[in-house]
Design a protein around this nucleic acid. Structure first.
Length: 257
DNA sequence: ATGGTAGGCTCCCTA
């Protein structure tokens, strides 16, 4: 059994104790992190390596930043979406994991987009288009593939606690939903949907959102058919969101036979 | 009600 998790930590340095406690408790084999918010030299590697993890990271100062932690050896590490080198934001990393049956994984932090009329929204749409093109190339390899991350997209209204509050925002906008569906149409499967678990993964820090369970499902594990066929478990680790000084996202944990 | 809170870093940006 191999477990693969995705978690937007909202600063790995602020969340290090939560991360270490959770790694000890659930011992996921592979962890896909987003919003590490630090340059590679400032990444707290020693504490994580002490728990038996290898690390691939791609950070920048203050914003964004993605990483892969793995109890199995990592190879073929790639930074950024290939053919997209002009985008300097650290939002994508992939690697081949030496699990008994090898698995290619990627950690992706899709741009939030701020508001539909901001200049950040077309950047979000272009990023999703480029991710889609890259997924098409990855799927031709035919290996077990897990692309996990903060997609900043609630796929359907049933993934939103307060549909009216979030209607027309960058998390529920028709244009981002179309692009997520395009990713599924070309052969990726959403682990939450496969396991019939539609739990929320993100609750705003403001206005007591977590206490009111005013959340959205925007973090996803997207699987190739080969990975989907071995999916055996899926859960959102809500306890980690309930801690003091928590990230605004909860880890999402998938299990594979 | 265009607020509210959090993180990083600088007197503001991003989410």
């Amino acid at each position: 059994m191999t477990s693969v998790a995705t978690w937007n930590v909202n600063s790995i340095r602020s969340r290090l104790l939560h991360l270490l406690d959770w790694l000890k408790a659930d011992a996921p084999d592979v962890v896909l992190l987003q919003e590490t918010k630090c340059v590679d030299d400032a990444f707290p590697a020693l504490e994580i390596e002490a728990l038996g993890y290898s690390i691939a990271r791609h950070g920048e100062k203050s914003y964004n930043g993605v990483a892969i932690l793995s109890k199995f050896a990592l190879s073929d590490i790639r930074i950024g979406i290939p053919g997209n080198e002009e985008d300097t934001q650290a939002r994508y990393i992939e690697a081949l994991v030496a699990t008994p049956s090898p698995m290619r994984v990627a950690s992706v932090y899709v741009p939030n987009g701020q508001t539909p009329d901001s200049e950040k929204f077309p950047y979000k749409l272009r990023f999703l288009d480029r991710l889609n093109a890259h997924v098409a190339r990855l799927l031709t390899r035919g290996d077990r593939l897990v692309i996990g991350g903060d997609y900043n997209i609630a796929p359907e209204d049933s993934d939103v606690h307060n549909v009216h509050e979030w209607a027309g925002t960058v998390l529920t906008h028709i244009e981002v939903r179309k692009r997520l569906r395009a990713m599924l149409h070309q052969g990726l499967y959403d682990a939450g949907t496969l396991m019939n678990v539609r739990d929320f993964t993100w609750w705003d820090y403001r206005a007591g959102a977590f206490a009111n369970d005013d959340g959205l499902r925007i973090d996803h594990l997207l699987l190739s058919a080969q990975a989907a066929d071995s999916l055996s478990g899926y859960r959102v680790v809500r306890q980690v969101r309930a801690l003091e000084k928590a990230s605004d996202h909860a880890p999402v944990l998938g299990s594979f036979n």
